[in-house]
């Protein structure tokens, strides 16, 4: 059962000021207001009830100092939510939701307790009276025998998901094609670079060989030659930096490479502390790629 079904019974209660009832009463005036109590019948465990309290009185505005705390209010009810709403006519309502949290053994009348709310700024208070609510168990006592079967779940009709599945399938295909195209482009770019850009090609060759092998050094030589547009030797290195000034930051390492190469191929043999041609080639490839962009 839900709280929205059925006719709401509006209880108009006029709250009178009782002068001698309490110490608070001696200090605070109790205002008259309208309290719309929840429907008094037809509840089972879990149902939510709404209590509405009009904050706009004919004489003055009521501004609650604090809203009632969200807590269990008695054995039957727990206060779940509070809030202030402004209706289309401009009147302000305090809306309090309770949930029925216990189930009686048989149909029973339970009480939604009375409570108060204060406006300390104006020295006023509202007293909300208790309300009687009839609640029932989910199943009757008569049907608690061992032969009682629970009702099966309600049959739910299947939603037609074929179009959604087709859409997911198509999008998956599109994603796969996009990814494949991207991968293909990446591979093609690497292949193109390894064939067109000197140091990319050298690096590609270096991956398949020992960097101390003569072939590795020769591959880097060919990359320098291609970059300079002529065969380079240590005495013709300035040509390289005229043609490719972006390699200037690596000039010291490049000169060291050519000096060591000269010794290795034409002089005393491999140097005792050879530089890493792979590291040099990777650095030059990085510069080459950045320059090509």
């Amino acid at each position: 059962m839900s709280r929205g079904v059925g006719i709401l019974r509006v209880a108009l209660l006029i709250v009178f000021a009782a002068c001698a009832t309490s110490a608070i009463a001696a200090q605070q005036r109790v205002l008259q207001t309208i309290v719309v109590q929840p429907r008094p019948f037809g509840y089972v465990i879990g149902d939510v009830l709404t209590q509405r309290v009009l904050l706009t009185t004919p004489s003055e505005e009521f501004e609650p100092t604090t809203l009632p705390p969200l807590q269990r209010v008695n054995i039957w009810f727990e206060r779940r939510a509070t809030g202030i709403e402004t209706a289309s006519d401009g009147r302000r309502w305090l809306v309090v939701d309770y949930q029925l949290i216990n189930s009686p053994q048989a149909l029973a009348t339970v009480t939604l307790p009375a409570w108060k709310i204060e406006d300390k700024a104006h020295g006023t208070q509202l007293a909300i009276p208790a309300a009687s609510i009839s609640a029932a168990p989910l199943i009757s006592n008569a049907s608690t025998g061992t032969d009682v079967e629970l009702r099966p779940d309600r049959e739910v009709s299947s939603i037609d998901t074929s179009s959604a599945r087709a859409s997911v399938f198509l999008w998956s295909i599109a994603l796969a094609v996009t990814l494949l195209a991207w991968l293909g482009w990446l591979q093609w770019r690497n292949w193109r670079d390894s064939h067109n850009q000197p140091f990319a090609r050298a690096l590609h060759e270096l991956r398949r060989m020992d960097e101390t092998a003569p072939e590795a050094w020769q591959a880097v030589h060919r990359a320098f030659d291609q970059t300079a547009g002529r065969v380079l030797q240590i005495d013709t290195l300035p040509t390289l930096f005229e043609r490719a000034p972006h390699l200037q930051p690596q000039r010291a390492d490049i000169e060291r490479f050519f000096a060591q190469s000269n010794e290795r191929f034409f002089g005393a043999g491999p140097p005792s502390n050879p530089l890493s041609v792979r590291a040099l080639c990777q650095e030059l490839r990085r510069i080459e790629r950045r320059h090509a962009q």
Binding site: P214, W217, Q218, H221, D225, R230, V231, F265
Partner: peptide, 8 residues
């Protein structure tokens, strides 16, 4: 001299 590669 500019085109014959060395070392190779």
């Amino acid at each position: 001299l500019e085109h014959v590669p060395t070392p190779r």
